[in-house]
Simulated assay, not measured.
Amino acid sequence: MKVWLFLFFCFFSLGTNAVVKRHDIPPENYVLEKAPEYLIDMPHEGHGVLIDPQWVLTVAHTIFYDYVGENLKVGSKTYQIEAVHIHPDYTEPAKHLLEGDLAPLMSFFKSRSDIALIKLTLPVSDVEPINMYTGENEVGEIITVYGRGATGNGLTGEAPDTKSLRVMNQFQNIVQSAEGSWIVFTFDKPENALALEGMHGSGDSGGASVIFKEGGSFLVGLSSWQLGHGDISTFKGGLYGATAYQVRVSNYYDWISSVLGS
């Protein structure tokens, strides 16, 4: 695994696989017995989402190396990766951004396009892909977000040593901002929070953010990064008041369509 990705997961909850929960709600209330079938575990950390019988959408920073030939389990079957398409505006952070003040790294994350498409060698036959949201009015919507890995609560933050448990959780939040590439929400304290309020955390990258309306499920976002302040060495993810950034799927609909069409 690349060194910068190790730092990325450890310090920021920015490539995420965790669900950080309210401290006053039983943790088991967030646990899912079974994940949605369109949610796919990536080869190492993070998730992808089946958006077409032969295509998986994820965040680019879950692609640690050339995944061609690697296997993905979708539903009850295993499929091989034929190709990986990373957005042309995705770049990795320079080493100097991974130390000292977080502000330059946060600006870097905000400026790039953290999204990728994975093509399978064969179409999936027994799992229904999720529909992508194509509107522009995500603000105010309640989203349900899925993740498997480290957990914690808003008082103490996430506990990285729980990541190996690989428990599937869900949480909810309300979209506060949806402009350009990003959907943004805040992990509110209990007095202002939803019943299953939460935050993505370390390892949850690519986890689906979904809205339910008109009798269907729609993919609106992919867990990507969490806003940090101060020095990288003292950052603690998953505390109340934390701000999450998720890839805004509607913003990339044309790029997704062009890759699938090609």
Rank of each mutant, 00 (worst) to 15 (best):
Y253E: 05
V220S: 00
Q226I: 15
Y253R: 06
I51G: 04
M106Q: 06
G207W: 01
Y133F: 13
S257Y: 11
L39S: 02
E37N: 09
A150Q: 07
W182Q: 00
L5F: 08
L260S: 07
Y252A: 10
F6L: 04
P129M: 05
Q176H: 07
V184N: 03
M199Q: 07
Q246C: 14
R148Y: 14
G206L: 14
V124Q: 07
S262F: 07
N131T: 09
A159H: 03
T144M: 14
D89L: 05
I130L: 04
G230T: 14
E82W: 05
V124N: 06
D254G: 01
K21Q: 12
V127N: 08
S164Y: 12
G228Q: 02
S233D: 08
M1G: 08
G15H: 07
K119F: 15
E92T: 08
E197W: 15
M168R: 11
I142G: 12
Q54M: 11
G75C: 09
T243L: 13
P26V: 13
I86T: 14
Q176K: 01
D188T: 07
W255Q: 04
S262N: 14
N71T: 15
V49N: 01
G46C: 15
A208Y: 13
L14A: 06
G203F: 13
T121Q: 10
H47M: 08
N17R: 11
A18H: 05
E33G: 12
F6S: 12
I86M: 06
V56I: 15
G237Q: 12
E92W: 11
S223L: 06
G157E: 04
S164Q: 01
E138P: 14
F187M: 03
A159N: 01
F108M: 09
Y90S: 08
Y133S: 02
D254Y: 00
P27W: 01
S76T: 15
E92Q: 04
G198A: 04
Y90T: 12
V247C: 01
E214R: 02
V127D: 02
E197D: 08
I143H: 05
M106F: 10
S209E: 15
A60R: 09
K189V: 09
F187C: 03
G140R: 02
E158V: 07
L57N: 00
T58W: 08
Y67W: 12
E214T: 09
G198H: 03
R148T: 14
G203W: 10
Y79W: 13
H47K: 01
A242C: 10
G207F: 12
G149L: 03
V49W: 04
F187V: 05
D66E: 10
L7W: 06
E70F: 11
H96M: 05
V3K: 07
H229Y: 15
F235M: 00
S257N: 10
N192L: 14
G154S: 10
M132C: 05
F11H: 02
V167M: 04
R112Q: 13
V49Q: 05
V145N: 05
L97K: 07
H23D: 05
G15K: 04
A18R: 06
V56G: 06
S113G: 06
A150K: 05
T91P: 13
K21V: 13
